[in-house]
Design a protein around this nucleic acid. Structure first.
Length: 594
DNA sequence: CGACGGGACGC
DNA sequence: CGACGGGACGC
């Protein structure tokens, strides 16, 4: 339609929109919710096998820089992203206990808004067909890409003649993506616009709370199944925890704002928590209950006292909600946080799973769900102690065992290091280990030695330079100033002649400000065959030119994400010169379309 | 010679 | 709870 064409034109003619590539091809970007300690490298390792990763972006808080537990991964192809989503949703990566939630990212314009019939967005293609083509011919062509839900040629209501276009719907996003990419180009496939949502029942949607998102209530919570009456019943009951400064009548009136409330009553519980009371609120329909949960969960009533509102499944065991549990706080929080995903997301069971968002962490499930066991669950906020007990054990036997298996050791340390870095503690730790919970010189040396080893391993076996090698066996860490570079570097190497042919160029971004240029030359030069490094005048980015592609790739692998002289580096392969302006971009697109 | 079609709904 | 950054071509 006109809309679609217009948006393309807008993007092409707007020089300011440099992000135009991020949603092309469509649905090739993942939106991932993860534990806050997960690193970019964890993602790269776990996702690279699904295709070509163009970018990984870890979202951080704008002011504090704290990771938000959200990441975007851009693949070069839609089908790569689709397969990665299907394979990785609900799974754990690295040593992080929380299962990932992996979704196809919305366009920037759509943002976090969820459409009512969200799943169709990724399962249905709109195609142009010859007027003479019938359903079975259409199906024959598209069946080669996966299991078809239906094909539907749009016909004139009166004459029954084909209008020349059709819909093809699959059961799996990856199949839709394959068809999108591989079907005959004459079909001009596009992901079909979602059908307009069905008008809702007149009653329950009229609340004036949270008007902006009032259309999202129903499908957000039930996107997967057509619930039977029995299973829906559980969704009509809510378990509520409120401050004891609120009485039953007040709470009743609050929940009665959403039409359909049957009753709201206090619940007597054994393990009650100081200052909090539990209630049951029952609606006469699941939609109303769902809506109430969405709007009132977390609502401060009275101000400063958040309500907890969850579904209360009729046949579930007596709830052990977050606020009344007897487990240690940290355990309860973490299991609740991902109980929903864990429980409801069997690996590899298909495309419907990503839309479970509305159910995550909601009531009735945490009582019998535990986090996926991991070798080393490290509670966020206290990565330190667990870490040290892992890699600096107190008994010699354990140490010896570790040394017997170099691979295990390296992996353990790699995980530990990423935890340290994720916690932002790397520097302080390396510089003053004695401040931390280490029990003595032996353990400290052990730990520092391991980290030393990690440094050597992480630079792919390149030996340490003589002037960085430990000269003091008791305090090897002190011979290397980690504020220079947060990773061990290879020994300095000669530069390549200035007139060498360029084998590969790296694009470098330094945050917040670039280190002195001689530092960059030293660091990037240590991978060999460096022709030159330069920063763009007065800015925080620049280029490194290498005569040898392998050298450049090693530099990228080692230095990306590292800190040099207090500046965080981003290192990526540079686009060819002038490839970023819109004229050439448009030309390239034109050529590809031919 | 000469410039942008066709194209939005089913189980 | 969990949605959008910064950074592109020198001397």
């Amino acid at each position: 339609m006109a809309d679609r064409k217009q948006s393309v034109l807008d993007r092409d003619s707007h020089p300011s929109l440099k992000e135009s590539k991020q949603d092309e091809p469509p649905n090739s970007r993942l939106f991932i919710v993860c534990g806050k300690s997960v690193t970019e490298d964890d993602f790269r390792e776990a996702f690279h096998k699904y295709g070509t990763i163009e970018e990984i972006w870890m979202v951080k808080d704008r002011t504090t820089g704290e990771p938000k537990g959200v990441a975007y991964i851009k693949f070069s192809k839609t089908s790569e992203a689709a397969t990665a989503m299907e394979e990785m949703n609900g799974r754990c990566i690295g040593c992080h206990p929380r299962p990932l939630k992996v979704l196809i990212a919305h366009s920037r314009e759509q943002g976090s808004r969820r459409d009512s019939n969200e799943e169709e967005r990724l399962l249905r293609l709109f195609v142009v067909v010859p007027k003479s083509m019938n359903d079975s011919e259409l199906r024959d062509h598209f069946a080669q890409f996966g299991d078809i839900d239906y094909v539907s040629i749009v016909k004139d209501k009166n004459t029954k003649e084909s209008k020349g276009f059709a819909y093809v719907k699959y059961h799996r996003v990856s199949h839709t993506a394959k068809a999108f990419e591989c079907c005959e180009r004459s079909f001009k496939p596009v992901f079909a616009d979602p059908r307009p949502p069905k008008p809702m029942h007149a009653d329950s949607s009229q609340s004036n709370i949270g008007s902006a998102s009032s259309t999202t209530s129903n499908y957000d919570v039930f996107p997967y199944e057509n619930h039977t009456a029995a299973s829906t019943e559980g969704f009509s009951r809510l378990a509520v925890v409120a401050s004891s400064s609120v009485n039953q009548d007040q709470l009743w009136k609050l929940f009665d704002i959403i039409p359909g409330l049957d009753y709201c009553e206090k619940r007597e519980t054994k393990n009650r928590q100081q200052g909090r009371c539990q209630y049951t609120a029952v609606y006469n329909n699941a939609q109303a209950a769902s809506y109430a949960k969405e709007k009132l969960h977390g609502f401060e009533y009275p101000p400063g006292q958040r309500l907890i509102v969850k579904f209360d499944y009729i046949n579930s065991e007596p709830t052990r909600s977050t606020s009344t549990g007897t487990l240690p706080t940290s355990t309860v929080q973490s299991s609740v946080q991902y109980a929903g995903v864990n429980c409801l997301t069997p690996v590899g069971s298909g495309t419907r799973l990503p839309f479970l968002s509305g159910l995550q962490g909601q009531g009735g499930m945490e009582s019998n769900v535990q986090p996926v066991p991991t070798t080393n669950p490290s509670p966020v906020g206290a990565p330190y102690h667990g870490l040290i007990s892992n890699i600096a054990p107190n008994n010699a036997a354990r140490t010896a065992a570790l040394h017997n298996n170099l691979a295990t050791l390296a992996e353990t340390i790699a995980q530990a290091t990423s935890l340290i870095q994720a916690a932002g503690l790397g520097q302080g730790f390396l510089q003053s280990p004695s401040k931390h919970a280490v029990n003595g010189a032996d353990e400290r040396n052990d730990l520092m030695g391991h980290l030393e080893m990690l440094g050597a391993l992480s630079t792919q076996g390149i030996p340490l330079s003589p002037n960085q090698a430990p000269t003091n066996n008791n305090y090897p860490g002190e011979t290397y100033d980690p504020s220079y570079c947060s990773v061990k570097l290879p020994t300095p190497q000669p530069l390549a002649p200035m007139d060498s042919p360029v084998g590969e160029r790296l694009f470098i971004v330094c945050q917040p400000t670039p280190p002195p240029i001689y530092v960059l030359k030293d660091i990037f030069g240590r991978f060999g065959h460096l022709i030159d490094v330069y920063m763009l005048g007065g800015r925080s980015c620049g280029y490194a030119k290498y005569a040898d592609k392998d050298s450049a790739d090693r530099a990228l692998m080692t230095l990306h994400g590292q800190e040099v002289c207090g500046s965080r580096l981003k290192v990526m392969t540079a686009e060819p010169p002038n490839a970023t302006n819109n004229d050439t971009l448009r030309k390239r697109i034109r050529i590809e379309e031919q």
